[in-house]
Amino acid sequence: MIELRDVSFEYDARPVLRQVSANLAEHRIGLVGANGSGKSTLARLCHGLLLPTAGQVLVNGHDTRRDAAAARSQVGFVFQDPDIQIIMPTVAEDLAFSLRPSGLSKQEISAQVDDWLGRYDLVSHRDHPAHLLSGGQKQLLAIAAVLITQPQIVIFDEPTTLLDLRNKHRIMAVIAALDQQVVMVSHDLDLLSEFDRILVVDAGQIIADDSPRAALDVYRRAALG
C-alpha cells in the first residue's frame, strides 16, 4: 500500500505535482495522462527515487524520506528503457547483481538466478552479453532482476512503450501473472481497462481517480477536447 499525503514536487522551483493525495491499495493501479503531465515523477515519488518537496509518501507505512531504506526494500521499479536498468555485462551476472545485498551464499544466488532464467526462457542466454538480447528479452531481464529481490509492490513506468506487439504481449502476460501489487504508467488504454483503478494525471494534478471505465472516459475527453 502506498499513501500519498498532500504531495507536491518541484524541479528547480517549477511545480510539477500539486498537492496530490491518494491511498493506493488495489492490486492493479494505472497512471495515465498526457506527456509531461507528471506521471513519471509520481511513479518515482512512490518508490523514493524522488522525495516530495512538500507532503509525505508512505510505503507500507514507511516514510520514503525518514525511513528510506525500509520503504525502498518493499518497492521494485522498472523503467521504460531496459538498456539503462541492466547494469552487469552478462545476463546471469545482472540477475546475481540484484542479490548482492541479500547476504546469500554464492550457491544460493546461483540457484535463484537459474530459477529466474528458466521462468523467462533466458537459460540459453545465461552468459551472453546483455546488449545482444532482443528488446523484449532485455525488458524480461530487467523485470526478472527486480522480481528476484521479492518486492511487495512493483512500479512500472511505460514498460512496453519501446516494444513491438509480440514482445508487448509477452511482457503484459508476465506482469498480469504477478502476485504483487502493481502500479503502472501506461498509454495503452486497452490494457488499462483491465485494471482495478485508474488515476488520470493532468498538469500535476489527479483529475480523475476511478474505475477504468469512468476514469478513461475523463482522460479521453480531456485529451481529445
Binding site: 518508490h47 527515487l49 536498468q85
Partner: peptide, 9 residues
C-alpha cells in the same frame, strides 16, 4: 543509469 543503480539497491 544513476537512477537504475539507486533502484537496484
Amino acid at each position: 543509469v544513476g537512477e537504475a543503480l539507486e533502484v537496484r539497491g
